[in-house]
């Protein structure tokens, strides 16, 4: 159990390429923080710097009350879950779980106890003597998590642990990870590019773009008040509509905005609404549908309940107070 404090952390590769710059995050003891961003935004690099697999070029990382910059990964008291599980293929599940403890000279009885405990928590008891190759993807993922749990580390680091699973399993495993973390109360950092995964798992979200933090906040804060157009377009599905103010100059209260954002779910069909949209395509999702169209040359998406066929043109109104205003540089004004 420990807090993790990143202070102005940066990563510059030997060739001079900057992958991460000026990242400061305070992660409280027991908190579940998700780093989210598109591929290449530096989120994995950041996690690997916390793990010690990547050297830290700038700033400091503290785990608990120690600065760990120059401490070997094994001595940082962290456990990591990898995207491709990284189970030792020649060892049985039991040996996989026990390997880290064995290397730390944990007494045999203690190892057995912890392995049994982890196996029970993760329900992998029946497979303990199998080789990883005889397990399904979900089971392997559980074993990988088991390997982290048995260590009883100060922090769990997850590097896109669910991306190799199929969509359905991903949803179940997501929930399991969440429950597990609730139960163990271990500080966790979780990296993903999937905004839905990020929203559902996180106590706090850190949205990264091009190696820099765009916004830190609880999932709802980030969703309701995205700090920039980047965050606005990245968090939420379907993505927020971002319209240049020039396309809709008549909307009241938007005088200083460069870009106006409206969530698709904040738009409703209203005969006297201020926006007119030409309908281009409709995606039926069952309970609701996504209507794609354009207004003043800008793309617009609306979520609405499924129903009868739509006319060619729709008039739309937005929920009062639901407009997000961004300045010319894409930063939030209101």
């Amino acid at each position: 159990m420990a807090s993790i404090i990143l202070d102005k952390v940066g990563k510059v590769y030997a060739g001079g390429t900057r992958a991460v710059g000026d990242v400061s995050i305070d992660i409280a003891d027991g908190e579940f923080v998700v780093l989210v961003g598109p591929s290449g935004c530096g989120k994995s690099t950041l996690l690997r710097m916390v793990a010690g697999l990547e050297s830290i070029s700038e700033g400091t990382v503290r785990i608990g009350d120690r600065v760990v910059n120059d401490i070997e990964p094994a001595d940082r008291d962290i456990a990591m879950v990898f995207q491709n599980y990284a189970l030792y293929p020649h060892m049985s599940v039991r040996q996989n779980l026990a390997y880290g403890l064995k290397n730390r000279r944990t007494p045999k009885a203690e190892i057995d106890k912890r392995v049994a405990q982890a196996a029970e928590i993760l329900q992998i008891g029946p497979y303990l003597d199998r080789k990883p190759r005889a397990l399904s993807g979900g089971q392997r993922q559980r074993v990988a998590m088991g390997r982290a749990i048995v260590r009883e580390p100060a922090a769990f680091l997850f590097d896109e642990p669910l991306s190799n699973l199929d969509a359905k399993l991903r949803v179940t495993m997501r929930l399991e990870i969440k429950e597990l973390q609730r139960r163990l109360r271990t500080t966790s950092i979780y990296v993903t590019h999937d905004q839905l995964e990020a929203m559902t798992l996180a106590d706090r979200l850190v949205v990264l773009n091009a190696g820099r933090i765009e916004q830190i906040g609880t999932p709802l804060e980030v969703y309701r008040k995205p700090a920039s157009t980047f965050v606005a377009s990245f968090i939420g599905s379907p993505a927020m509509n971002l319209i240049s103010r020039r396309a809709v100059p008549h909307l009241p209260g938007t005088d200083h905005a460069g870009t106006i954002g409206i969530r698709p779910e904040d738009l409703t069909v209203a005969p006297d609404g201020p926006l007119e949209m030409e309908v281009l395509a409709v995606e039926e999702l069952g309970a609701q549908r996504l209507v794609h169209g354009q207004t003043g040359g800008e793309r617009l998406t609306v979520t609405m309940p499924s129903g009868e066929a739509l006319p060619e043109y729709l008039r739309l109104a937005y929920r009062p107070g639901s407009l997000h205003l961004f300045d010319g540089k894409g930063l939030r004004i209101a």
Partner: peptide, 23 residues
């Protein structure tokens, strides 16, 4: 042999010679 395996071993506290012997 995937890099992640090497990294997992590093986090599991296996030094170079141990990694060589055990993995």
């Amino acid at each position: 042999i995937p890099d992640e395996l090497t990294e997992a071993a590093r986090i599991d506290g296996a030094g170079p010679m141990k990694f060589f012997r055990d993995i």
